[in-house]
């Protein structure tokens, strides 16, 4: 009973906030609706007893990716009139994508009606009592270790690539030397003087 209620709650909010992402006038509101959608998708994952994926969804997407989205969108100086001006010129492309998606949906539902594909045995069976994280770990670090490592390498290369592309070494700056700042002690920075009245300080 509670599961059913929770499912319909999460599912409705996911779909509704997904729609609001498109319909919201303000881009910041769009991103916030997207975050709500992510969060409720995580709720659906919990219902599937995939709690590890759910937590990861919240940590990675809600906690990191969406924050960056929000950052970028908030910083944008958006002119709404200009934004809508392009509507007509983008309409054919957008419409084409929408038609492709619609056809795919129809095909998908049709195929599902025609009967499910027999997926056969799961590649690696684990006892049902194993907690989620252990199950994923056991598969990821044994059977799929090379794929996993390859994925890690690709991400590393992507990260280095992004840094190389965006990094520019600016000349002519005088950056702080933190080590020198930390090594500085009071006796080399402060000088006590016995100042006579009416004379300037010798620096």
């Amino acid at each position: 009973m509670i599961q059913v209620l929770a499912f319909y709650l999460f599912a409705t909010i996911v779909v509704a906030s997904g729609a609001m992402v498109i319909f919201a006038r303000n881009p910041v509101h769009s991103v916030l609706w997207l975050i709500l959608a992510f969060f409720n998708a995580a709720g659906l994952m919990v219902l599937l007893s995939a709690e590890f994926v759910a937590m990861l969804l919240v940590i990675v997407y809600v906690g990191a990716v969406a924050v960056l989205f929000l950052f970028v969108v908030m910083m944008l100086d958006i002119d709404f009139a200009q934004l809508r001006a392009g509507f007509v010129s983008y309409f054919p492309l957008g419409g084409a994508i929408a038609v492709v998606l619609l056809v795919e949906l129809v095909l998908g539902v049709g195929a599902w009606k025609a009967g499910a594909i027999n997926l056969g045995q799961r590649a690696a069976r684990l006892p049902d009592a194993t907690p989620n994280i252990e199950a994923i770990g056991q598969l990821l670090y044994t059977r799929y270790i090379f794929l996993f490592e390859a994925a890690g390498l690709i991400l590393l290369v992507a990260m280095i690539g992004a840094i190389v592309l965006t990094h520019r070494a600016r000349g002519g700056t005088r950056p702080q030397n933190i080590d020198r700042q930390n090594r500085r002690r009071p006796d080399e920075a402060v000088r006590n003087i016995d100042q006579p009245v009416g004379q300037g300080v010798e620096l």
């Binding site: 709690e51 937590m55 990861l56 919240v58 940590i59 906690g63 990191a64 924050v67 989620n132 994280i133």
Partner: peptide, 20 residues
């Protein structure tokens, strides 16, 4: 729950939104 610490990490990452 068996993902207790991850849950705390997830919740604390949502905490940013109140401020933003």
């Amino acid at each position: 729950i068996n993902v207790g610490l991850l849950y705390i990490l997830a919740i604390s990452s949502i905490g940013v939104y109140g401020v933003i």
